[in-house]
């Protein structure tokens, strides 16, 4: 009870109502939406989830990672590989997958933070590790090499092995996204969360008031890597195929960063709003470019939309909406 009180303490009542309505809507959404609508909503939730995971590192602790595909890739590959080779289901495999991603995150984090790399330099280190791993997986037979790893497509519902139709994957990703939302709120309202914000604003001043900077940054990257690995596992079983070229691509890492940056870094709702905006734009532009039959047009619209957002709403879309409608969540 006191945990619940702490979680919702200080939140305006109307915001809580809105949240409740949103949750109910999401729970019943599959009955309201068609097949296409559900697939779009699944994408939104996926990017919201993985965006929240990335936001913990960049939005809260201020550490720019452009190599988060590493954790999604490692997680996805391990869970898929265990299932493919040994028939070990993802509910068990996910523990190994998350542990491996946390280990990878610890290595990147320890090396980067130990040597006080920050900003672009740290970002490049994360890219380098991700690319390095991509090439390694290209040559690793167990993971299928550059030819990829394929899971048998199986529409019969087998929840124990995370096999089934979109509905199953919808509720799993909804649970992950909603759980992470609560987790982020709990983290922000804790000592650790405040320490992260202090590190983001000024690491030297933070350390002077007793913040164990290295330890806090390590926890941030480990939590973020663990959640990203979950997203990777979910993604691997949803799409049933994995290629190093896409699993560890820099483009994938960048995709993870867009929803939180566009929605509003460091906010709870930013990654979710950003995911809605991005996926929505993506779908609209896909339809538009199909009208014109020109490949690349979709991406041009997309690029233009990004340009407009970053030029006119550099702090993100959500803080602006929150301000206008009185939801009261600002970037902290």
């Amino acid at each position: 009870m006191s945990l619940l009180a702490r979680l919702i303490g200080g939140v305006p009542a109307r915001s809580l109502w809105c949240l409740g309505v949103l949750l109910v809507l999401l729970l019943v959404a599959p009955t309201l939406l068609g097949k296409y609508g559900l697939s779009v909503l699944i994408l939104v939730l996926y990017f919201a989830f993985v965006g929240q995971a990335w936001n913990i590192m960049m939005g809260f602790a201020g550490q720019l990672s452009l190599g988060h595909a590493l954790y999604a890739g490692v997680g996805g590959y391990i869970a898929a590989g265990l299932f493919f080779h040994y028939g070990i289901g993802p509910w068990a495999g996910v523990f190994v997958a998350v542990a491996a991603a946390v280990a990878a995150g610890s290595i990147v984090g320890y090396l980067g933070f130990r040597f006080s790399l920050a900003g672009v330099y740290f970002a490049l280190l994360t890219i380098a590790f991700s690319e390095f791993t991509r090439i390694a997986f290209d040559h690793w037979g167990w993971a299928g090499g550059s030819g990829g790893l394929f899971l048998k497509v199986d529409a019969t519902s087998d929840i124990l092995n995370l096999r089934g139709g979109p509905l199953l994957f919808y509720y799993v990703i909804l649970a992950l996204a909603a759980g992470t939302f609560v987790l982020c709120r709990a983290l922000l309202e804790s000592r650790l969360g405040r320490y992260w914000l202090a590190i983001r604003e000024d690491p030297e001043a933070a350390q002077a008031v007793g913040v164990p900077v290295l330890r806090c940054k390590m926890i941030a990257i480990m939590i973020s890597a663990a959640l990203t690995a979950l997203a990777g596992v979910w993604n691997a079983f949803y799409y049933n195929n994995l290629f190093p070229e896409t699993a560890f691509a820099m483009g994938r890492s960048i995709e993870f960063t867009l929803a939180p940056i566009i929605g509003g870094l460091g906010t709870l709702f930013g990654p979710i709003v950003g995911a809605v905006v991005l996926t929505g734009l993506g779908e609209i532009f896909t339809d538009l470019s199909e009208v014109f039959h020109i490949s690349g047009l979709k991406q041009i619209f997309y690029g233009l939309a990004l340009l407009v957002i970053v030029m006119y709403r550099p702090a993100g879309v959500w803080p602006w909406i929150a301000d206008r409608f009185g939801f009261g969540e600002k970037r902290r």
Partner: peptide
């Protein structure tokens, strides 16, 4: 940095 990054990324995509 993340704002500059997003800006130049948009230019790159274009």
């Amino acid at each position: 940095e993340h704002q500059q990054f997003l800006l130049l990324l948009a230019i790159a995509i274009l």
